[in-house]
Write a protein that binds this DNA or RNA. Structure first.
Lengths: 338, 338
DNA sequence: GACAAAACTCGAAACGTTTCAAAGATTGCC
DNA sequence: GGCAATCTTTGAAACGTTTCGAGTTTTGTC
């Protein structure tokens, strides 16, 4: 009763069954121009009866796989759910599908393996790869980069308004009365000044706001480091200092969650303010109740996918989309002790 | 300065550069038998210099794409992170890569689109598709199903020990002194008796345990329904009943999070016990602090990927892996009012 | 009803790999 | 040194699509 790995139905089988040429079948399945109603009908019947499905591999070899690839740095990055959701919405109704390739290692290799003819376009979050390399990649396949504030020639970019978002956080914390505000962010390589990563900008805005408020001397930046220092520890160390901060501005919600962990563990839940970024679904949970910046991840994902589709239809000049931000104030916005 | 969509380096280019045949290059890149050290060296140099990367499309057309596909029903399902992590671990060091295809729609179509020559093997969580259809799919490409307690011929299965896990939860709640225990689960179609889905078994065990304890009359089952009824509402309705339950046994952590939401919103955080399933990373967060059943998702993912690799190497008899479960008791294990 | 234009259909060549049988080179043995 | 056995290497034929130019039929116009 064991079924052997069967050869599947090919376009030739359909052509034969419908009594037409392979070229004709190809046109029908692609809705291409120049096919008579009669032929279309016969071909569609044959396709139906045989249960024909075009081979993605053969199509890809010939030109298009009808797949868009989404590269994501960490499997867990909750923000990516939003992006994926948006991208899926954008391709609904087109023959395209979105697949996800988690990096978890060197980003170059994940991107390259996507580009190796598997997908027709790539959406990626890769702050670390350099622009020249990306321009080169974009020469082979359309690319949309998320969260790069550069102005490339060959690829498109989708970013949030990190200046506005970070500034909104700082203004909010100042208004609550905080002065000792610390910033919790990613490792140095992701926040290098001028690198144009979202986290470098949030950090820069943080510094600037502190300076403008005459609080430059209270500036404190802590970072998580991949395995060595989880964000919980970085936060805990901040809290253990002689004059600990009264507010923690976390670079994104995942870090904010860890910060909350540290704050709660230190028994300071209603003494220390914590803010996040991305407004992921958990932020609204009453047990988390995290103030966070919404940067419309779903819309960003949808825009990114749309840009790829445009490229596939021939657009060549680069596009750039900047998503507006919106601060959601929640219970983690504790006032400082007065 | 605009780069035109360049044709990339092919195996022929490498062959020419190295002064050998295409077949020879093919052998080298696949580490196949029968290639002299001299030739290998020349070919490898040429590959290096030209920056050659094999086309996945062409390879797939010819046999193997070296990609494994992971189908996941909802983008957000936190449990899938664990599976993905395990699968990636298992393929590390092999030429295989894992890609993720979120379903979000009819599962058949996602699975088929994966099977259309894109991947060499499929790992899927699809409780709803029927066995015959899967056997057929498995005839075309190796398949490992997660969470199906059936005994198929053509595909492999990886499951958690849902009987033991659910029983552990119930025993735990009884020991705490609970009698009014409600079960919060997925829509009917996923829990049909005898369907062999994990949720049908957890439900069945719940009913059985209640009956065994002489509490059959207190059995209460509530369900979320895709868009209409989020789990928060289902839970809230339970809590609003005349004699509300003192403990909520949620089918998995995502539902448990919603249950906690409802419990907190009703102001009953330290009156009602909540338990989850899957022990996702959030359960351990001090603000969530959710008692949950660990079913070794990472190990399950690793096993699934390993099974695919075995199939690709020729195994034909079906395999089945059952992961042990382990209850993690946390703060959400409230005692009932005495 | 003749002729041009438009609409439709087709055969064959590509796309970049892997595989298979066969040719060519080398080794071992007596 | 000759012959068989083994080891290397190769050319050509797949794999299943799309595309392109050319051939065939239909339509429209006078």
């Amino acid at each position: 009763m064991s079924i052997k790995r069967g050869r599947s139905v090919t376009i030739s089988d359909v052509a034969e069954a419908a009594g037409v040429s392979r070229a004709a079948v190809s046109k029908v399945i692609r809705n291409a121009y120049g096919v008579s109603p009669g032929m279309r009908a016969r071909v569609e019947t044959a396709i139906e009866e045989l249960g024909y499905r075009p081979s993605v591999a053969a199509r890809a070899l010939r030109g298009s796989s009808y797949r868009l690839g989404l590269e994501t740095p960490h499997i867990n990055a909750r923000f990516m759910s939003q992006i994926m959701q948006g991208a899926k919405q954008a391709v609904a109704g087109t023959p395209y599908q979105v697949i996800l390739a988690p990096a978890d290692g060197p980003e170059y290799s994940t991107l390259e393996s996507l580009a190796d003819g598997l997908v027709d376009g790539i959406i990626a979050v890769s702050p670390l790869v350099d622009t020249a390399w990306l321009e080169n990649l974009a020469g082979r396949v359309p690319v949309v980069m998320l969260g790069r504030h550069d102005h490339p020639h060959g690829y498109d970019t989708v970013i949030g308004d990190d200046h506005a978002g970070a500034r909104a956080v700082m203004r909010h914390l100042f208004e609550l009365g905080h002065r000792r505000i610390a910033h919790l962010t990613e490792p140095e390589e992701v926040t290098a000044p001028g690198s144009g990563t979202p986290h470098s900008i949030r950090l820069e805005v943080y510094r600037q706001c502190m300076a403008e408020a005459g609080l430059g001397h209270l500036t404190r930046v802590a970072r998580r480091h991949d395995n060595a220092v989880p964000a919980t520890r970085a936060a805990a160390e901040l809290l253990a200092e002689p004059d600990p901060p009264t507010a923690l501005f976390a670079g994104h919600d995942d870090i904010a969650l860890d910060a909350l962990d540290a704050v709660v563990t230190a028994g300071l839940r209603d003494r220390i303010a914590v803010t996040g970024y991305d407004n992921t679904d958990l932020a609204a949970h009453p047990l988390i109740d995290l103030t966070s910046v919404d940067q419309q991840g779903v819309e960003m994902g949808a825009q990114a996918a749309t840009m790829l589709l445009e490229r596939l239809q021939g657009r060549t000049e680069p596009r750039r989309y900047v998503a507006a931000t919106n601060l959601h104030v929640r219970g983690s916005s504790i006032r400082p002790p007065s």
